[in-house]
C-alpha cells in the first residue's frame, strides 16, 4: 500500500470539498485537474482570470477556438450560462471578495499562511507573476494543492517561506499528496491523513509541530 495519493486522486479529493454553487478559480497546473473531478450534477462555476465565468472542459481537436482560452492559454469551452468580461472586472471579482475559492499551486506555504508560488528568486530567472498575487489575496478561501515534498525531498510546508512571497497570511488550507492541512492560529493542523501516512511521519517530513484538527471547531472555521 502506498503512502500517498496520485494527482488525480488528490484532485478528486479537493473537488469533493467544493460546495454546489461555488464560484471557483483554478490556478495553472495541477489545480486545473480539479475541474475533471467535480461531482456530477453540482453547479460549480469556474472563473478564468482572462475574462470568463462558466468555463467548460477542453474542446475536441477540430473545435479549438483561439478566442476561447483559459489563464494557462489553453483551449476551453463555454457552458450554458457563461459570461465574458474585461480584465478590470475580472480582477475586481477577485479583489472585491466575490470569488468563493481559489486553488493554487505552491513552492512553499508557511505556517501563518504565507504563500510563495511565483518565483524561486534565482538571479538569472525572468520574473513573471501574472494574476498570482491578486488571486492569493482576493478569494474568500485560498486552497493550495501540491505535493508535500519537492523533488529534492524538502517540505513545501515551512515555518517561514524562503522564496519571494506571493501573498501574506492568505492560505486557508493545503491539500497535499499525503495529508490535508488547515492553517490555524497555532500553525498547521492536520485535517486528514491519506493512505498509510501517519502524523509522526508528517512531523518528520516537515520538521513542524503539527496537531490534528479539533473536529468540533473545524466546521465553523472552514466556512
Amino acid at each position: 500500500m502506498t503512502d500517498r495519493l496520485d494527482r488525480d486522486g488528490l484532485a478528486r479529493r479537493v473537488a469533493a470539498d467544493i460546495p454546489d454553487g461555488a464560484y471557483v478559480n483554478l490556478g495553472i497546473g495541477a489545480p486545473t485537474l480539479v475541474a475533471d473531478h467535480l461531482p456530477l450534477g453540482s453547479e460549480v462555476i469556474l472563473h478564468t482570470e482572462n475574462g470568463m465565468l462558466g468555463m467548460g472542459p477542453a474542446p475536441a481537436p477540430g473545435h479549438v477556438d483561439p478566442d476561447l482560452i483559459n489563464a494557462g492559454k489553453l483551449a476551453v469551452t463555454e457552458l450554458p450560462g457563461a459570461a465574458y468580461f474585461h480584465h478590470a472586472d475580472s480582477f475586481g471579482m477577485m479583489r472585491g471578495g466575490h470569488l468563493d475559492l481559489c486553488i493554487l499551486g505552491a513552492f512553499q506555504v508557511s505556517q501563518t499562511g504565507d504563500l510563495a508560488n511565483w518565483s524561486t528568486g534565482t538571479p538569472d530567472a525572468i520574473p513573471a507573476v501574472g494574476g498570482a498575487m491578486d488571486l492569493a489575496i482576493g478569494a474568500k478561501d485560498v486552497y493550495v494543492m501540491t505535493d508535500l515534498l519537492t523533488r529534492g525531498g524538502e517540505s513545501k510546508l515551512v515555518e517561514t517561506c524562503t522564496y519571494p512571497l506571493t501573498g501574506v497570511g492568505c492560505v486557508t488550507r493545503v491539500y497535499t499528496d499525503r495529508a490535508v492541512f488547515d492553517v490555524t492560529p497555532d500553525g498547521f493542523a492536520v485535517r486528514e491523513l491519506f493512505c498509510t501516512t501517519t502524523l509522526d511521519e508528517l512531523r518528520q517530513l516537515t520538521g513542524l509541530t503539527l496537531t490534528m484538527v479539533d473536529e468540533a471547531t473545524t466546521d465553523e472555521e472552514s466556512r
Binding site: 480584465h87 480582477f91 479583489r95 520574473p127 494574476g131 498570482a132 482576493g138
Partner: peptide, 9 residues
C-alpha cells in the same frame, strides 16, 4: 513587472 490585476486597474 506588474501584477495582472494592478495592471488592469
Amino acid at each position: 513587472l506588474v501584477p495582472q490585476g494592478n495592471l488592469a486597474e
